[in-house]
Design a protein around this nucleic acid. Structure first.
Lengths: 365, 365
DNA sequence: CTGAAAGCGCTTACAG
DNA sequence: CTGAAAGCGCTTACAG
């Protein structure tokens, strides 16, 4: 650590009295090195604190052991969890990570980004930008021709032209809505995320399908669009209350908006959950400390991030063996889980089919 | 983008009918290229979509244009803001980023991390781990001998052996406490972060100094330690109320704990801010939507992250010119700002010296 | 303004 | 089990 002159494999070889490729063999744990040679070289390495130049190694091996990660919105819950999981799993599998953050999910600069990553010789790319509008359109034209494996994190509309791993967002809508109905709700409103987002549309779809399965009409009057922020959740509830004063439950598409709903309910004098049940999504750290503690839907984002790395490692190995991947890209969706707290009325029947019963009286604290 | 066979500078040179170093000159915007040669080469580059291999370039230049970033706790507010700012500024200045996340702020694996970064030939290292216990002790012994510039993000106790950029955390404590006193508070409690953290101790120091400046005793009865979580804020208020039932203001060392305080105050029937003023730190997105909206202290973390990159770039350039840096490492602290909302009683006098007046009646909504 | 040569620090066949 | 040669894809002096 203390050396100012860059130490090279040549220095180590000289000090150990062997050739450079013998040192190389030791560094790469090759079996064909005599025990005492091994000892000697290892000792020199230890004493000098030599560490091989990964750049040079990458150049000869044609493999950088670096993954390019493109992400958006680290200030938000989901992206930061995914990135953390990706980094952890990558480190565990011997990959370094080069991080590229974009300012807007709808970037027009895809070409530039991809070629920058290619120039850095990444072994694979993890594209952790949610699908917003047609910001994944590039994968249709360029997907098959990418020089390195690419994996998308997050689901998308239409046929995936690249392998993708995400959360089953329709299931999120189902879980939340099913739970609200089971608690006796009859008029379940929804505050969606921006509808240009695939995730938002899927959560809305889950809500709609669940209502229909219970023979309830998913009226447009019960739907309002938010933008993930607390404020939009608050405004959303005001709008819904104006349209349907008898609304008795809200599925907010994330916990921040759910917090806004609590806020608005408080201002309008609607007690939660007695008069209004509320479900959020994400299970942010604060959710269990909202007033009342928030029922929410957990997304296995850590699993998704880790799985993305495992999967891209597999694709990298495969590509290197057969020179090209012939798999049909598939979309893997992981299942969310409901976390029940006190912002929703308790389930009155275990059978979802019997969910439409009278509203229960105010729950105890 | 569509090429499966890696294109090299040699291919471009051949296609343009020039030598490789003429292509190199074009790639590096060297002035000494004939106009028509330039044209020809650029055209070939455009047509083929050639992008130079950064690994090879780094090897010859002895410079990777990559910054190693070591961070902790992306799930928290501060770290994610700093990382975002670092990435943005780095991208703007032509650096790539290799990200290393650690699981605990007190890592024993510093050597391993540093040598891994060194092996990747990073041009500089941004160490964005807060000082906890003696987790920066390594900088004393290794600081001066690091083969590349290192910059620490966050302040630290004692003399810095490496340049460091952070937030003036004592000023955070001063701002918060001064504001509480100006609102008429006489018994200001504090819920600190973990006291093994420099940040926590500095915020405590600011609180103490401010009370003393106002001739108020910073009694130990008014201090309780939290761990940044909502729960610890809640428990903290319970403890303080038991010890000092007449406490009339709380400085919580982050917004999450401040939320816990609101929660606990609600449960104990203490109205905020009429009976209890509360200030947090961070200005998280939810802060303005807590009930009541939270008065808090903003930290210029984005500036700190950006400044770290600017500064390390300067050090990198300097090191490359003079072969070594002879500057005395200095600690730069940026100033926080108070954001006043409704969780604190309004200021009753503009002169802080007159702050000790009667509590004001309940504030209007 | 342009090119032939050497080298960055490694690893990959190829001999022995 | 070990080493001499060639090469990964660039750039840096050095000539001209």
């Amino acid at each position: 650590m203390a050396h100012r002159t860059r130490l090279t494999i040549r220095d180590v070889a000289a000090a150990a009295g062997v050739s450079t490729q013998t040192v190389s063999r030791v560094l790469n744990n090759r079996p064909d090195v005599a025990p005492d040679t091994l000892q000697r070289v290892q000792q020199v390495i230890r004493e000098t604190g030599y560490a091989p130049n990964m750049l040079a190694r990458s150049l000869t091996q044609g493999r950088s052991h670096i993954l390019g990660v493109v992400a958006y919105g680290l200030e938000y819950f989901g992206p930061s969890r995914v990135l953390t999981a990706v980094e952890r799993q990558a480190a565990e599998m011997g990959y370094g990570i080069t991080l590229n953050l974009i300012l807007q999910p709808e970037t027009s600069d895809v070409d530039h980004l991809l070629s920058a990553l290619r120039a850095r010789q990444v072994d694979g790319i993890i594209w952790a930008i949610p699908e917003v509008s047609d910001n994944r359109a590039w994968s249709r034209t360029k997907g098959a021709e990418m020089p390195v494996p690419v994996i998308l994190v997050g689901g998308m509309a239409g046929k995936p032209y690249l392998p993708s791993i995400g959360i089953d967002n329709a299931a999120i809508g189902c879980l939340a809505t099913e739970h609200l109905l089971a608690g006796g709700a009859r008029k379940v409103g929804i505050i969606t995320g921006p509808l240009s987002w695939w995730e938002s549309r899927q959560r809305l779809l889950g809500w709609r399908q669940t209502l229909e399965a219970h023979n309830l009409a998913p009226s447009e009057m019960l739907v309002t669009e938010g933008d993930w922020t607390v404020t939009s959740g608050e405004q959303g509830l005001y709008r819904l209350l104006e349209r349907c004063p008898d609304i008795d439950a809200i599925f907010a598409s994330n916990d921040q908006m759910a917090l806004g709903v609590l806020h608005a309910a408080h201002r309008r004098g609607r007690s939660v959950p007695e008069q209004l049940s509320v479900v959020g999504v994400d299970n942010i750290a604060e959710a269990s400390h909202f007033w009342p503690p928030m029922t929410t839907v957990y997304q296995p984002l850590t699993d998704a991030g880790a799985l993305a790395v495992v999967e891209i490692d597999r694709l990298i190995s495969k590509t290197r063996q057969s020179r090209r991947s012939d798999e049909t890209p598939k979309m893997t969706l992981l299942e969310p889980e409901l976390i029940v707290r006190e912002s929703t009325r308790p389930v009155v029947s275990l059978d979802p089919a019997d969910a439409r019963v009278e509203p229960v009286p105010a729950a105890l604290d």
